[in-house]
């Protein structure tokens, strides 16, 4: 029980810090801590692959992106100057929604069986063997055999996201080779000089 409480405390404190931090970079750091704790929880809950994915994708890619954007937007240390946060209304609305979620999960939890230890000599199961719950092999088999359609749809979503991001943030000016651009500039300059009559 005690490890659970510790992890739970870390999760909640880091989540609170994420939401309340004065500088966005502190949110990032606390979220990193949060993710690490979550990954640990996943590992304990026999979601081995997801624990690693949590770190690789969430911490290594998504959160890194946040750091990147913070560095880009706000090269100094000072927090982005913003108006006052909408504090008074927020918790009420959030609490209402959270209560709904809580009730739903509580009902679900009431029906779920208690967590029973998986009786194998290696707690995480043999590698590559698809029949041990939570192993990478098991996960892989499920992903590529029984749940292939959602996987492919996710791939599509990712592709769309990549294209979208490139279109959104990329340089949208048409590509002109360097030499031709130099020639264009020179011509424009010459025309401007002719116009000015110098």
């Amino acid at each position: 029980m005690i490890p659970f409480w510790i992890i739970a405390a870390v999760l909640i404190v880091s989540a609170l810090w994420t939401v309340t931090a004065r500088k966005p970079i502190y949110s990032v750091v606390s979220l990193l801590l949060n993710f690490a704790a979550l990954a640990t929880t996943y590992l304990i809950l026999h979601a081995e692959f997801l624990a690693v994915m949590q770190i690789i994708v969430y911490s290594g890619a998504i959160l890194m992106l946040f750091v990147f954007v913070i560095a880009l937007l706000n090269s100094g240390i000072a927090a982005v100057v913003l108006g006052r946060d909408r504090v008074p209304v927020a918790p009420a609305a959030a609490a209402a929604l959270a209560a709904v979620a809580f009730v739903a999960t509580a009902i679900a939890a009431a029906h779920a069986p208690a967590i029973a230890p998986i009786a194998t000599h290696s707690p995480l199961g043999a590698v590559g063997r698809g029949n041990v719950f939570g192993s990478i092999g098991d996960f892989g088999q499920a992903l590529f055999l029984s749940r292939l359609l959602p996987f492919e749809i996710t791939a599509l979503i990712l592709m769309v996201a990549v294209v979208g991001v490139v279109l959104l943030a990329g340089d949208l000016t048409p590509y002109v080779p360097t030499r031709r651009r130099a020639e264009q500039t020179r011509r424009a300059l010459r025309e401007a000089i002719l116009r000015e009559g110098k």
Partner: peptide
């Protein structure tokens, strides 16, 4: 809901 910084 509460924060106004889009990153947060």
């Amino acid at each position: 809901i509460a924060r106004r910084n889009p990153l947060v």
